[in-house]
Amino acid sequence: MKGIVYALIVALALTMLMPFLWMLSSSLKPQSEIFRLPPAVIPPHPSLDNFRRLFEQTPFALNLFNTAYIATAFTLLALFLCSLGGFAFAKYRFPGREALFLVLLGSLVIPFEVTMVPLYVLYQRIGWIDTHWPLLIPGTANAFGIFFMRQIIRGVPDELIDTARIDGAGEFRIFTRVIVPVVTPALTSLGIIFFMSSWNSFLWPLVLLRSSQRLTAAVAVARLQGSIYAPYDLILAGSVLLTLPLIVVFLILQKRFIEGIMAGAVKA
């Protein structure tokens, strides 16, 4: 019985990993090898030529940089604003708090798709199309993050805050010096979720970005597919480069990552 279970779980794990391996292996083959019968699992003449041509023929280096800096900036700003908001809801009493919190929770119900067309029109009017602003600013102070951080910060003992206040610390100083240090693990978990969703976002950048130099890597990979000709060699090289950084981040921060997902689910 145990043998069967092991066999099944090994098979499953391999199935999950297989597309990555296939992506990697194909990215090292020329187009003619990718579409050859039977295909070779291990490339007979592995070469980084696809990657070289990807960087030479398209501004993919810039696209990767765009993705990386947008994800980083978005994550830092979002962590700051969400923990600040979560702190306020967790540790202050102020008129209208319950009502405001309800509005915040209610906003979780609104799907992004409903706002897509009017937001597009709005960005058009304020000149945000084909810029990175719509990917950097909206959504940084988001309901999920504030809710998440509120739950965490509620667990911080009030005495810590009171002591700091007696010592003459200002409100903002209490936040940076007392709250942030004790919730760092939670911030890491939340940060990975933000980072990943920004890194992988597709639909919105697809609609908003135009110039090839301003594209994020995800959109750049999709755009490689021209109207009639699909350069799979380049597409797969781009796919590998788009996937690899997140896999590395995941392998390093695996524990925090999974904790964040669990916590997010349980709290919601």
């Binding site: 990555f20 296939w22 194909s26």
Partner: peptide, 21 residues
């Protein structure tokens, strides 16, 4: 980790690989 890994990847990237598969 093996089972969770696909979740962290960009759909665009694996989408093309699946089209190939």
């Amino acid at each position: 980790a093996a089972i969770f890994l696909p979740y962290v990847t960009a759909v665009v990237a694996v989408g093309f690989t699946f089209a190939l598969l």
